[in-house]
Nucleic acid binder design. Structure first.
Lengths: 143, 143
DNA sequence: CAATTACCTACTTATCTGATATGTTTATGG
DNA sequence: CCATAAACATATCAGATAAGTAGGTAATTG
């Protein structure tokens, strides 16, 4: 499992907010209901997105969450990197992995590196705006 | 983390056996030493590979393990699918995942499906023979 | 001031990972 | 035929992670 519920939920929330934007701030409860996700669990996820500036959160009556940028400017990779611990397919390629002695001659390292590149390349090439378009004509982001 | 040590070790063992083949059976202890992997832990991994016919295991003095086919006939995907629980990047795409109600309209499903296809496609396109060739001229399996 | 809503901290429960320990069976060489 | 080498089998375990729950605090508005 490369992507946990945390990352999947984060993506769905971003899409939800993008789709219900314009009419000011969207309270978490609304999104949680629509997406059928536990409110309390979602809170933790949205906190991360706010802290990193992807969303604005406003408290009190009339408050809620809102995107800070246009949907086409958020890549899937950007969102997942915040909510997932890592997107690396193997431990050796993680951020803070302890350097592996076998690196210089490991027969499998190039395999993992290429896999990593392909995964990151794909996820960085799809935007939230792309994900909104399911069912529309000419939707080919999956290709 | 898509691939755990189990899968990574399995791959390294297959390569190790491929490289030390011909001189009959290779005892687990040898491979474990060369690859710096716990003997006991490796046993469990090799058992799986034997049970599925990728390796032959022979007991007693002079025994050990041997590939049953030529290195170029084993794909990385084939090996990893045996040793990893799943290669699916998200829970919804696992073998025995309970069918998701949101499937027909889920905005993110196509994203995961395409990611899954790309990962599987890459891993099924690389063989054990390819992995042996690191450092050789014209080695371009990572491209 | 009351209601709403985001924000914060801590806990829980189940599952998975990466092993270790302790044997049993099978084959070979002396 | 017995000691040794080796695969095969089963159980257990400690630590980490995932997914979610609980309970409370702070800010904003009508």
């Amino acid at each position: 499992m490369l992507i946990s519920t945390k990352g999947r939920y984060a993506l769905r929330v971003m899409i939800d907010l993008a789709e219900h934007q314009g009419d000011a701030f969207v309270p978490l409860k609304e999104t949680a209901d629509r997406q059928d996700i536990s409110e309390k669990y979602l809170e933790g996820i949205l906190k991360i997105l706010v802290q990193h500036g992807l969303l604005t959160g406003v408290r009190g009556k009339g408050g809620g969450y809102r995107l800070t940028r246009r949907p086409e400017s958020y890549t899937v990779g950007e969102i997942l990197r915040l909510t997932e611990d890592t997107l690396a397919p193997v431990a050796c390629l993680e951020e803070n992995a302890k350097p592996c002695r076998r690196m210089s001659y490991c027969r499998t390292l190039p395999l993992w590196q290429e896999l990593n590149t392909r995964i990151a390349g794909y996820l960085d090439g799809v935007t939230v705006a792309d994900l909104m378009r399911r069912g529309e004509d000419g939707n080919d982001y999956v290709i």
